[in-house]
Amino acid sequence: MKEKLDSILLNAKEEILKSNNEVEMNVVKSKFMGKSSEFTEIMKGIGSLSPEEKKSVGVLTNDFRNSFNSMFDERLKNIKQEVLNKKLESEKIDISLPSKSVKVGSLHPLTHIRYILEDLFVSMGYDVVTGPQVETDMNCFERLNIPKDHPARDMQDTFYITSEMLLRSQTSSVQVRAMLNNKEKTPIRMVCPGKVYRRDNDDATHSHQFMQMEGLVVDKNISLADLKGTLLEMARCLLGKNTNIRFRPSYFGFTEPSYEVDVSCFKCGGKGCALCKNIGWIEILGSGMVHPNVLRMCGYDPDVYTGFAFGVGLERLAMFKYGITDLRGFYTNDMRFLNNFNRKDVE
């Protein structure tokens, strides 16, 4: 009996291995395990055997069934894998082809700069405020200690709307509003980004419309050291952690003392190069201690409060940070210009 089953199993093995798909496998299965198979005949005959024979034949038939099933399942598994592999292969694509994508959008570079600065100053407890672009002469000049006929008005030839209304030539007008609006005359920490206008012809370094951000701090015991600390944070945030700054005395009317602020040239690190005209420093903004007349006109007692203010042109910062050489690019809005800014910058 054992020889018989072994020989059937040998045949079965041969046919299982010859089968190449599930249909052939089913044929093999019914041939060797089906109703009319030799094995089924043997199983049918077990009933008429003696108990002892039953026992030994039972062991043999069990072994046979187990061996068959394991050979069968193994083969079936392989066949299924092959089928799947073929299917996968048929789905092969050229992953190097260009993607299908929605247009990639971008924020304007001036917006990038503005948001970097806003986030920095908010993190330092400054409020971000805005003010109107159509301003009064009072807020844009008079209350900033620049009376009519003051020579400092020369520097900022202004678009007037009437004799008393104008397009603001500096975001400093928002300083005045912030101080006047603070009825309790409590300390102020604010920045104000926004558009300003001057009667300049548009060229590579001038624009009749541009963006500024003004900063103002009014509190007790504010000094130039606080201003320097604040501006150093700002310069490093924008231009890198090795940046240094220096103050150069200047004059603005609404601050006293007043300083132009230079940053160490981020291209050459201060050694001197074409960008910094071999000076090692690049001017980026104007600043100073709020003039006592300004504090007084805005309702703060200059004997109690001091403050600092600064104003920075965002175009200039963007030009340095991103290496833009022509100011007009910001307002021409060539798609090829804008698409440079379609990503997140590294921190």
Binding site: V122, S123, R189, S223, D226, K228, G229, E233, R246, Y259
Partner: peptide
């Protein structure tokens, strides 16, 4: 101007802690 301000230390602003409004 004449003494020079190059040596002013940069100090971080000390003020009452409050969240900036934006």
């Amino acid at each position: 101007r004449i003494y020079g301000v190059d040596n002013i230390e940069a100090r971080n602003l000390v003020a009452m802690l409050k969240p900036g409004k934006i």
